[in-house]
Each structure stands twice: as structure tokens, then as C-alpha cells.
């Protein structure tokens, strides 16, 4: 088998709410797949279906070649899961929780456990109720990464971790990839997914709206540049890879593809830059720009006014 996760046309409703609306998701073995979407798009619901914790209303889902609902126990020996919101047993220590979850999965690597605890700077002797959110998250990450598994499913695993720990996390994910582990990483932060993932699926209102390699998603990784310049913008506007160019009173705003950033900055530096702000597009901006989404909640259909003012307001 070369396909780790294969989901086709899955629908899941909770009462009146249609959480997943014919979702397709395809993850090859050995790849790190980013599962990107705003809060409430259906990421956790998809993951819970893959774990056999929820039953899909219709559609096909297959995980490591098995049925996630029927073969749950068998499949779970081969995967590890980090929930998005970790709640630990108040009177068990972090170390006990790590061992317990590892053993229930079929054992963990004591050497890697020790190394993970050290690198994540986790005190395993504290009781669950005394950990902060970030430390509870670390317990779940250590428990998952200390096992030898084929597939890691992680639901916003680094929410609550500080940047230093996020780097440690990225190192271990890279290590897992080198060992051939498949990773499904859900996130609502584009930059995080960009750093780690080979391929990305973008989910919006219960449907995957775009899926592919990072290269194919290049347009998503455009950097937004705002600068005050003293000279005329001249050739900048017509350069390759520069998009959405706007200019008023000595201020220019444009988006530039990652591969053309170097050239654009060179050009810009000739123009007497007085101030410069550059940032990657936020997920919200992407959703606005590419899928005509509205900020805030679903029903109000004022796509156009938002689409026009939203990004410009930055």
C-alpha cells in the first residue's frame, strides 16, 4: 500500500449542522500532509472519523488500508494521536500518562521517551492537574512520538507551545519523516504547515477546496509587502511574480511569489525605501482572497465588501 489515508465523499452531520460535506482527503505514505483550515472548518471531525471515534454518515474512509470504524483497534496499534485540546487525569503524573498511553498502543521506546522529555523540558513527576496547557500538550506529544508507529495524526499539536518548543517539535517531526513515518498535521496557521509539510489540503466549511504539493500551492505562499518609497515604482509593477500591485502617495502594496521575492526586494531597494513591512498571508487572508470567504460566521453573504476591504486594511 502506498496510500496512508484515503477519504472520499465523507459526510457527517450533528443534528442540523453539516460538519463535513463530501470531504475528500488523500495522504500518501511517508509524506507530511498539512491539513489546513480555519477554526470550525471540520478538521477535528475528520480526524475523529479517521480514528473511528465518530461514524461517518456516508462516504468512504480508509486508513492504512483498513476501515477506521471497524478495524479501529488493529489500526490504532500502528498510529499515534495528539489531540488538539489535551486533558490529563488530574491525579496521574505526566510520566504515568505517557507510559500508559504508550503501553495501551503496544509499547514505547524508552530511549526516545527519555530524549523527548529532555528536549521538551518536561517534568514527568508533576500531577496532571498542575500542568499548564503547553505542558499538557507536551505530554501528549511525547506519548505519541515515543512510540514506533507508521502514522502520526496530530490535531493542532503545537497550540500552547512557545516558539522554542515549536522548533523542538519540528526537529522531531523531521526525524519521524526520515524514518518513513506518515504525518497528518492539522493547523490553522499557514506558516507552520509551510515549514513542515510536503503536501497540503485546505478545508473550508466541511469540504477540501484545494489539495496538492507546496509547489502547486505557491500562490498561497506569496509574501505581502508594504513599503514607503521616495521614487517612482517604475518596473516593480510589471515584474514576474508580483501581484495585486497598488500605489498611492508614495506607498506601495503588493504580493510577491516566494521564488521572486529576491528580485522584488532588489528592485525595491533602488527606490529609496523609508519603511518596509513584509508578512506572509494569514489563513484568513487566503480564505478571503481565494475562496471569497467572509470573516466571522457563515451566513451573511457580503463577500464583495469584505473581499475589498479585508486585506487592504492590513
Amino acid at each position: 500500500m502506498t496510500t496512508a489515508i484515503d477519504v472520499t465523499g465523507v459526510v457527517k452531520t450533528f443534528g442540523q449542522t453539516r460538519a463535513l460535506n463530501g470531504l475528500n482527503l488523500h495522504v500518501e505514505q511517508g509524506e507530511i500532509h498539512g491539513f489546513l483550515g480555519p477554526n470550525g472548518a471540520g478538521k477535528s471531525t475528520t480526524i475523529r472519523i479517521l480514528l473511528g471515534l465518530l461514524k461517518a454518515d456516508s462516504g468512504e474512509a480508509s486508513l492504512l488500508g483498513g476501515d477506521p470504524w471497524r478495524d479501529a483497534v488493529h489500526l490504532h496499534r500502528r498510529l499515534a494521536y495528539v489531540p488538539g485540546d489535551v486533558d490529563l487525569w488530574p491525579n496521574l503524573t505526566g510520566g504515568e500518562a505517557i507510559d500508559l498511553l504508550g503501553r495501551l498502543r503496544g509499547g514505547l521506546d524508552p530511549d526516545r521517551r527519555r530524549r523527548l522529555i529532555e528536549r521538551f523540558d518536561l517534568d514527568p513527576t508533576k500531577k496532571g492537574r498542575t500542568y499548564s496547557k503547553g505542558n499538557r500538550q507536551k505530554v501528549a506529544i511525547v506519548a505519541a512520538l515515543a512510540s514506533n508507529v507508521e502514522l502520526l495524526i496530530m490535531d493542532e499539536p503545537t497550540a500552547g507551545l512557545d516558539p522554542l518548543m515549536e522548533t523542538v517539535f519540528q526537529d522531531f517531526i523531521a526525524e519521524a519523516k526520515a524514518e518513513g513515518t506518515t504525518v497528518l498535521l492539522s493547523s490553522h496557521i499557514l506558516a507552520q504547515v509551510e515549514k513542515l509539510c510536503d503536501t497540503i489540503s485546505i478545508i473550508r466549511q466541511g469540504e477540501v477546496v484545494q489539495s496538492g504539493s507546496l509547489e502547486e500551492m505557491r500562490h498561497l505562499t506569496r509574501t505581502t509587502v508594504q513599503a514607503e518609497i521616495s521614487e517612482a515604482a517604475g518596473a516593480l509593477e510589471s515584474m514576474d511574480g508580483v501581484h495585486d500591485f497598488r500605489q498611492e502617495d508614495g506607498r506601495v502594496t503588493f504580493a510577491v511569489d516566494g521564488s521572486h521575492l529576491d528580485g522584488a526586494v532588489r528592485q525595491l531597494s533602488q527606490l529609496g525605501v523609508r519603511s518596509l513591512v513584509a508578512h506572509p498571508p494569514t489563513l484568513e487572508e487566503l480564505m478571503l482572497r481565494h475562496y471569497g470567504d467572509e470573516l466571522g460566521n457563515g451566513e451573511s453573504a457580503h463577500v464583495d465588501p469584505h473581499g475589498a476591504t479585508g486585506p487592504g486594511a492590513n
Partner: peptide, 15 residues
């Protein structure tokens, strides 16, 4: 409901 069953059921433990 506290979400502590979920990580256990995501291991090789049946409902």
C-alpha cells in the same frame, strides 16, 4: 466529555 477517553480510544483499546 472531558476528552480523556479520546486519547485512550485512539490507542489499541476498543470502545
Amino acid at each position: 466529555t472531558a476528552g480523556r477517553a479520546e486519547p485512550v480510544l485512539a490507542t489499541a483499546v476498543s470502545q
